[in-house]
């Protein structure tokens, strides 16, 4: 059975990994490749790199660091931020990313999702959705990478979740903004509601603070993966321990089988 995915999200700004709280006050967390390698070694199932400056500044993503990451790590990774056309998407994928994630540009022009799915295949088109609870409804937010430029696209999250799948999204990452940065748990009510509308994989984002929050989101909201940043970057939740604990609780989790060094094919060339 396919395992749930534990996905560290690395926010990238100017070639460095940074982290803010509620999308503000970014602190430097380290070099991209060093952190990527650390997470691979710890058993992360996938990585997401989010270029937090590219989208609000309408800059395209820089592929140089993507190539460095692709040369270094052997687990799948997704690149988000600043991808707003097929040419850029192809460049990011050719540089070695497995998936591209689009958020604000998809709201600007929903046909972009279909164009990317047609050109690159649905399986590498992820749509990120930033969602906020507002007067008893879930509403989408745009340009959340920069609080001063944030826009209300006047869209219900439910409607958008259905629409992006119709257009060809192969996966949805739902970032619940009310929970983001709080470390008080994923928004399982919202994620569960969206799960029922979602035929493609759904990834939870925002609010992880304790291992129990991961168990809760997998058991209650039936998501396919859970994304987190600060609890992993700070070492508050070590991934190997988290995955072993989830496996002990009966969650289907990838525990890396060890292959002894002498068994690997050193000197193949």
């Amino acid at each position: 059975m396919v395992a749930v995915r534990i996905i560290p999200c690395l926010d990238v700004r100017d070639g460095r990994v940074v982290k803010g709280v509620k999308f503000r006050d970014h602190r430097d967390m380290g070099d991209i490749v060093e952190l990527a390698e650390r997470y691979r070694d710890e058993g992360a199932d996938e990585l997401v790199f989010y270029d937090i400056t590219a989208s609000p500044q309408r800059r395209s993503v820089d592929v140089e660091w993507i190539e460095r990451v692709a040369a270094a790590i052997d687990i799948p990774f997704c690149v988000a931020g600043g991808i707003r056309d097929v040419v850029t998407a192809r460049a990011v994928l050719s540089a070695g990313a497995d998936k591209i994630s689009i958020n604000s540009p998809a709201l600007e022009r929903p046909a972009l999702i279909a164009e990317l799915a047609e050109a690159c295949g649905s399986q590498c088109v992820v749509v990120g959705i930033d969602s906020i609870s507002e007067q008893g409804r879930y509403r989408v937010r745009q340009y959340t990478g920069d609080p001063d430029n944030m826009v209300d696209p006047r869209t219900d999250t439910e409607r958008w979740v259905v629409e992006v799948q119709r257009l060809g999204a192969g996966e949805i990452v739902l970032n619940c903004m009310d929970a983001d940065g709080t470390r008080s748990g994923y928004d399982v009510a919202q994620l569960g509601a969206m799960r029922r509308l979602c035929q493609v994989p759904l990834i939870a984002s925002g609010g992880a603070g304790e291992p129990a929050h991961f168990l809760e989101v997998f058991e209650t909201a039936d998501v396919d993966g859970a994304l987190a940043a600060s609890v992993f970057h700070s070492g508050h939740i070590p991934i190997p321990g988290l995955k072993r604990w989830l496996a002990d609780q009966g969650v289907v989790t990838r525990i890396d089988s060890t292959i002894s060094e002498t068994e690997t094919a050193a000197g193949v060339g």
Binding site: V2, S122, V200, P201, D222
Partner: peptide
Amino acid sequence: GLRLPHMGWNQ
């Protein structure tokens, strides 16, 4: 209850 694409780690 299973999603498509089949995306992720399996045995």
